[in-house]
Design a protein around this nucleic acid. Structure first.
Lengths: 134, 134
DNA sequence: TTTCGCCCTAACGCTAACGTCAACGTAAGT
DNA sequence: ACTTACGTTGACGTTAGCGTTAGGGCGAAA
């Protein structure tokens, strides 16, 4: 019987992580300061687990879609609920659904922006082709 | 024959605009400082045209989708090309298409974020229902 | 006339999200 | 023994995007 339990010994140093995601070490420490990441320690050195890596991924995506670090923290906390009182769970559920509708609005904004820009690009393209005629 | 040309005499004071879009007057002036808006003047007072209003709309949407004011300015400039050399037009076209692919990436990010959050919300929901059983 | 309400400029203040620099420890290669 | 690479903790600097006084003008209502 193979041991499938503690097998995920995937660990990362700070430089491994910063290279993979192209962020500075400063940034990773900053996120830790803000409670977004909580890597283990080997003496002083930080050791990032697979879960830390996953969280970082979420953080960066959150940033790309325009969330502040504070908001991202809220979202990360959502993924951390194993325990928690029922009332607390309800609050979290509420927050999660709010974020979702927020994201859906953003998606619409983005689609409109894409549509507008596409139209404009085609107009410019048209202007260029007209000039080629002359 | 009705005059369809100069008919759009739609003008807005700074307070009208700030109320409609729920931004501060300071913000509108700031955007002007940054060259994002260029309202006409009546003495010192700003007079915003219908086009200014449209630009503001674009600015705010740009912000919502995470563009910096500098990037938004670039985009706004795209909408302003009536003149311009052919080479300049090509550059603009290039920029516009870059923004579009950027936006498409963002849309994917957002869709993934929505999917993740939805799953998490359902899990939390499941946890709540389990507790109701006991 | 005084008080409103709306408008202006100029300039300092503030928060977020890091960058950057100083000063230091440790472990490995030469 | 020295350098090089990687790690650490402060702590100050920087940029963007406004907020917030401070100080004043203009026209209508009381």
């Amino acid at each position: 019987m193979p041991d499938t339990s503690g097998d995920r010994q995937q660990c990362y140093s700070i430089t491994e992580l910063r290279r993979e995601f192209e962020v500075s070490a400063r940034t990773l420490r900053f996120y830790e300061d803000k409670g977004l990441l909580t890597p283990a320690r080997d003496g002083q050195a930080r050791i990032y687990s697979y879960r830390d890596r996953a969280r970082l991924k979420l953080i960066l995506r959150g940033k790309r879609v325009g969330f502040s670090l504070a908001e991202i923290k809220e979202i990360l906390d959502l993924y951390n609920l194993r325990d928690g009182q029922a009332t607390q769970l309800k609050v979290s559920l509420e927050k999660g659904r709010e974020k979702i509708t927020e994201l859906e609005h953003q998606r619409r904004d983005i689609e409109e922006a894409i549509a507008d820009l596409s139209r404009t690009c085609e107009i410019i393209d048209g202007m260029l082709k007209e000039r080629e005629m002359s």
